[in-house]
Amino acid sequence: MIRRLLMVVSLPAVLFAIWFAASLSSENFYAPPLRTILVAFKDTWTPDRLRADVLPSLGRLLAGYALAAVAGVTIGVAIGVSKRLRAAAEPVLEFFRAIPPPVLVPVIMLFAGIGTSMKVIVIAFGCVWPVLLNTVEGVRAVDSVLSDTSRSYGISGAARLRHLLLPAASPQIVTGLRQALSIAIILMVISEMFAASNGLGFTVVQFQRSFAIPEMWSGILLLGLLGFALSELFRLAERAALGWYHGLRSAQRKG
């Protein structure tokens, strides 16, 4: 147990120590000593600052992400169950997915201005494609024997959706949601860099423009921590929701 803990923390600790030691006497304007950055971190990200800049960012992120998840799964199931709809929609969806999401920012700014709704729409619009396409794929690939079983036992309509299609597609849906999460963070930052008066992306760019280098580094650190925290949360939620899937996979591997 101690050995494992040591394994987990030793490399990050070593890297951190190297960074700290190597930068201690740094004269480089762009790479200030880590100690300076950490002091700046403490001074910059006060509770007030977190409330004013980080909370709005997170709120937009969650709103856009939730919108994308609901829309992606709903439309994905609809397309996934119909062969003809799927054939017609797939090229269009592939095209939309291939568009780099950040270029949507200027387009959506035309329609929705530069307010909060613009950012939410940008995040939703960028995140929806991986969720949608993965849902389509997951619903399409529902096991034929399982589907026959459901039909023989009279499981149809809403019960089919709830007990067969959604759970069967859930591993794929989660894959899509994971891809969407990293897109959501990117779009949150980008949309704030473009036009905003608060938010994490806005603040970090302000620091960079005013050459407040240690503060800028502290912002980068905070963004990194945020990305890490969100992905850990996602992993925990996934463990809980897809416990059966991981068990099934390891059972199959052993078998």
Binding site: D143, S144, V145, L146, D148, T149, S152, Y153, H163, L164, P167, A168, S170, W244, Y245, L248
Partner: peptide, 14 residues
């Protein structure tokens, strides 16, 4: 009621 050959695929794994 039907019992299929592929038990692994006819039971709901979740």
């Amino acid at each position: 009621a039907v019992v299929f050959q592929e038990y692994g695929r006819s039971l709901f794994p979740w």
